[in-house]
Design a protein around this nucleic acid. Structure first.
Length: 586
RNA sequence: GGGGCCGUAGCUCAAUCGGUUAGAGCAGCGGACUCAUAAUCCGUUGGUUGCAGGUUCAAGUCCUGCCGGCCCUACCA
């Protein structure tokens, strides 16, 4: 039996504005992976949701005078719309602010980590804002640099002298969002998750060895050479004093009180990834399925394949922190709990395909500098499939890459010419000269098309399994190029004048590329795949093995041919660039 | 401060452990063809691999220094 597959995309921050960088980094590749697996009949589940807690959300909500819950709901709506527009096919898109099932599960995670001895209490000093009645994170603090005296140093770094600062040592500290808000240093304490034993933990070590082998080099260098073997792991705070978040429970697993936790909530990076699980539980409840199938494995069994798609900034959480939390859910004793019981444990990730960053014409996307592309209008204008096609083709898989308007046109036109026009030239030919029905194959064979389809399909499958989506996309387009080459070699437009049966036989073969192309297109450009099937008068493709491919039988009545992919005029690109730069091009 | 990445054809990018004459696509140029969305197919121009050294039988690849661009540093993909 094949293993179930659980795919997640990084939980977007409810406060964040989605742009192409997010989509191309963590959502689109996951969606391609998931659509591919659905197509071949894998048991795959795709889970996401918004990350609703944390200081940035509370500050933004307060600034607008909106209740927290309402504020993050708006964020959810935005992300849900954008992902929907781009055809990101989540099985469930939840929120970490939902008390059922998220809060209870997050609290259970805390209690189990505590019970298994990985949570410690630590006294700290932190900058406190009397005006807003809370402790502020370093990045919300500004003050006078204690190295160079610059008065506008940030809590983490001085922009003037470049020194690496400790926020607590800043002189004259104040809130970044409100200069009148003078901060004071106050004693506090928080719970911390002690990550020191992580890499040597007997539950973790065997997994870690395997995990390392599958990671892209940029990911494994960061996790292993820098963090585990380099700096070493420390304990990190997992609670904060905030009015918005999952409350730290005040009774432990054994019914003993946990002192002084009023006003404390679980901190974002402890709380957020649990959202992957609670979102799965929510899905299971709705669909009457079993969430444990994807998250829990019995000792000695493989369990599901867990794959986290993220941007590169999220590597530490998904490769170290969340796995440690999952592993440290093991507790002895008889408790009535949701997670793994005796002889069970949570699955640990098989891979964390982290993409690099995606910029716009060489510079970082920035809404405030107007250096951006509005996703909604863009997709309305160019269509979801053409958007997806380009973003996949330009995806920052191995290094940072760019959205480049001229490249968008070039890629789009290539797709229109090699793929769209290929379907069009055959279908119109058959409509004109063969009554729009699949001609007879005669004594010819389908060996050539069958072999080419197999080669391309296998290469595409391999690339997707290795998270090389750009290469996978090339195989799809490559099959269309094979088809064009076939026509060039057989020249049915010549045969028509001399030998109509031979002409029909050639077209019969050429037509067979099209159902295969609709299959290869499906993970990347599902709308185009469907349109092509309509033009072929084929029912939507169900799940099933990629091979053997479908065949258009002799006499099959085809649908009506029309332009699948339109080209983009130069003037359109010129005006987009002008709008972006604010000046006409040189 | 610490760590990492990148620099290859006009443009976007490849090149497994160091191993043949550094490859594709786009653009350009020349040709063939006419079924098709001026498309497709064939051919072709174009490189001192950022600079300077070093190691090696052999360097785009490894080492040192420099120049230029970018990112991470655990709370803004």
């Amino acid at each position: 039996m094949t293993r179930p597959i659980l795919v997640t995309s990084a939980l977007p921050y409810a406060n964040g504005q989605p742009h192409f960088g997010h989509l191309v980094g963590a959502y689109l590749p996951a969606d391609v992976f998931v659509r591919y697996h659905r197509m071949i009949g894998s048991d795959v589940l795709y889970i996401c949701g918004t990350d609703d807690h944390g200081v940035a959300n509370t500050l933004a909500a307060e600034k607008e005078g909106v209740p927290y819950r309402e504020f993050v709901q708006r964020g959810w709506d935005v992300w849900n719309d954008v992902c929907g527009q781009l055809g990101i096919s989540f099985d469930n898109f939840s929120q970490t602010c939902r008390e059922v099932p998220h809060y209870a599960l997050a609290q259970e995670f805390f209690l189990r980590c505590k019970k298994s001895g990985h949570i410690v209490r630590r006294d700290i000093e932190q900058l406190y804002s009397p005006k807003t009645n809370r402790f502020l994170a370093d990045r919300y603090v500004v003050g006078e640099c204690y190295v160079c005296g610059h008065d506008d140093a940030r809590g983490d770094e001085c922009p003037k002298c470049g020194s690496w600062l400790e926020a607590n040592r800043l002189k004259n500290p104040r809130s970044r969002t409100d200069p009148e808000d003078k901060l004071e240093l106050r004693a506090a304490w928080q719970f911390e998750l002690d990550l020191k034993p992580f890499s040597e933990d007997p539950l973790v070590k065997p997994w870690l060895t395997e995990f390392r082998k599958g990671l892209k080099t940029n990911v494994s260098k960061f996790v292993f050479e820098k963090m585990i073997e380099g700096e070493g792991l420390e304990s990190r705070p997992i609670t904060r004093d905030l009015p918005w978040g999952v409350p730290v429970p005040n009774v432990d697993l054994d019914g003993q009180p946990i002192e002084d936790v009023d006003g404390k909530v679980l901190y974002v990076w402890f709380d957020a990834p649990i959202g992957y699980i609670s979102s799965t539980m929510e899905w299971a409840e709705r669909e009457n399925k079993d969430w444990r199938r994807y998250w829990i494995r019995k000792d000695g069994e493989d369990g599901a394949r867990l794959v986290h798609f993220i941007g590169k900034d999220n590597i530490a959480f998904h490769c170290i922190v969340f796995p440690s939390m999952l592993a440290w859910q093991q507790v002895d004793g008889d408790y009535s709990l949701t997670g793994p019981g005796k002889g069970e444990q949570y699955v640990l990730p098989e891979n964390v395909p982290a993409n690099e960053f995606f910029n716009l014409e060489g510079k970082k996307f920035s809404k405030s500098d107007q250096w951006t592309i509005d996703i909604g209008p863009f997709i309305e204008k160019y269509g979801v499939d053409r958007t997806r096609y380009y973003l996949i083709a330009a995806m920052p898989e191995t290094s940072d890459s760019d959205f480049i308007w001229r490249d968008f046109k070039a890629r789009n036109d290539k797709l229109a010419n090699a793929f769209g026009n290929f379907a069009s030239r055959i279908l119109k030919f058959v409509a004109k000269h063969f009554d729009n029905r699949v001609p007879a194959l005669g004594s010819e064979t389908l060996d050539r098309v069958t072999n080419e389809v197999r080669t391309r399909t296998e290469a595409m499958a391999r690339a997707i399994e290795e998270y090389r989506f750009r290469n996978a996309l090339d195989e799809f387009l490559g099959l269309a190029e094979d088809g064009n080459q076939f026509l060039q070699d057989t020249q049915p437009w010549q045969l028509r004048k001399t030998d109509l049966a031979a002409c029909g036989a050639a077209l019969h073969q050429a037509l067979q590329y099209l159902p295969a192309l609709s299959a290869l297109a499906q993970p990347f450009v599902p709308g185009l795949a469907a349109s092509l099937r309509t033009q072929l008068n084929l029912a939507p493709r169900g799940a099933g093995p990629l091979l053997p491919s479908e065949r258009l039988a002799e006499g099959h009545a085809l649908g009506e041919a029309s332009v699948l992919v339109a080209k983009i005029p130069d003037e359109v690109i010129a005006s987009e660039l002008e709008a972006l730069r604010g000046t006409p091009e040189d």
